[in-house]
Computed example of a mutant assay.
Amino acid sequence: MKSFHGKVAAITGAASGMGRTLALQLAGEGCSLSLSDVDTKGLTETVKLAQNAAEKAGQSIKVTSQKLDVSNREAMYAWADKTVEDYGKVNLIFNNAGVAYATPIEHIDYDRFDWIMGINFWGVVYGTKAFLPHLKASGEGHIINTSSLFGLCAQPTQACYNSTKFAVRGFTESLRQELDMMNCGVSATSVHPGGIKTAIARKSVASPEIEEFTGADAEAGKEFFEKFFITSAEKAADIILKAVKKDKRRVLVGPDAVAMDAMVRTLPESYQAIVVGQMKKMRDKQLARKKRNAVKAA
């Protein structure tokens, strides 16, 4: 797919972050949009911004939106059918919606684990299977599934998130191989973003026990980790769309993703010890800062 002009793209998690910037860049290239999210207010804003982006670029497109919980299988299939009903076809599905849940394994809440798995993994599976027949019917289709840097390497307190993103990676790599064998005009790309400047950290769920590993309470921990989000959502969207045009099997988004991928490939076992060492250093700094602040307050 060398051009998005005249194509139709469906995007989950389109109310903000990478989902929104993907929508705006596609709109500017003349791609019509079927957008979804649970955040209807943000979704309405994205629709307006996409229409403005298209108009500014001199493009004539159609944009529709749908409130959607991607973990609801029936709703996902209904949205896929509605997209084709509205546009007559669909060429791309960006399974982009995602959430975060941080906690030590010892303190995992099973309901929370089901919640994150339902959105991050099953949402990708449902989106892939619901749209695949329609993509094949279009004659030119692409499935873009968002994994993560944490789908390439594991991190302490991120076992639930790691599980979902490693699963997306394996699912998408298998999917791509099957599509290659089918030669049906549809392809797939696994996306591995590093720290992207979106609201995912602020919206994440973290258990109180995370302080044991980070030295900071849940809210302070979110602010701390946001400092490592170094790539803009606009840059991330640009990298992803270029990768789709080049039909890449996977794409690393951000210098941190590139560096960590290289480390894991070079040191597939000992990278874990390096991660532990860095986490301990960060925790010690946090604890020392808290101690100094306590002394000042006294």
Rank of each mutant, 00 (worst) to 15 (best):
251 V>M: 07
220 A>R: 13
242 K>L: 07
164 T>P: 01
201 A>S: 04
188 A>M: 14
179 L>H: 07
174 S>Q: 10
190 S>V: 06
192 H>P: 02
142 H>T: 04
179 L>C: 12
179 L>V: 05
244 V>W: 03
155 Q>A: 13
209 E>T: 07
180 D>I: 02
263 M>Y: 11
208 P>W: 14
267 L>A: 12
203 K>P: 00
204 S>I: 05
217 D>W: 02
262 A>R: 15
145 N>M: 00
239 I>F: 02
239 I>G: 06
172 T>D: 08
211 E>P: 08
199 A>M: 14
201 A>F: 11
247 D>E: 13
170 G>C: 04
171 F>D: 14
165 K>E: 08
142 H>M: 13
195 G>Q: 00
193 P>S: 13
156 P>N: 12
173 E>F: 09
215 G>L: 03
149 L>D: 04
235 K>I: 13
157 T>N: 10
255 P>W: 10
170 G>M: 03
242 K>E: 03
191 V>N: 12
253 V>R: 00
160 C>A: 15
164 T>S: 15
205 V>I: 08
186 V>E: 00
178 E>S: 07
181 M>C: 15
227 K>C: 11
204 S>M: 09
216 A>V: 06
238 D>A: 11
152 L>E: 01
160 C>N: 14
201 A>W: 08
206 A>H: 12
226 E>I: 04
250 R>P: 06
263 M>Q: 08
220 A>Q: 13
174 S>N: 10
188 A>F: 01
173 E>W: 04
238 D>Q: 14
153 C>Q: 11
249 R>G: 15
184 C>E: 09
168 V>A: 03
258 V>R: 04
171 F>P: 05
190 S>F: 00
268 P>S: 02
171 F>I: 03
213 F>L: 13
259 A>D: 00
263 M>W: 09
235 K>Q: 13
152 L>K: 15
164 T>F: 04
261 D>F: 09
228 F>C: 02
225 F>G: 00
249 R>E: 03
162 N>G: 12
245 K>F: 06
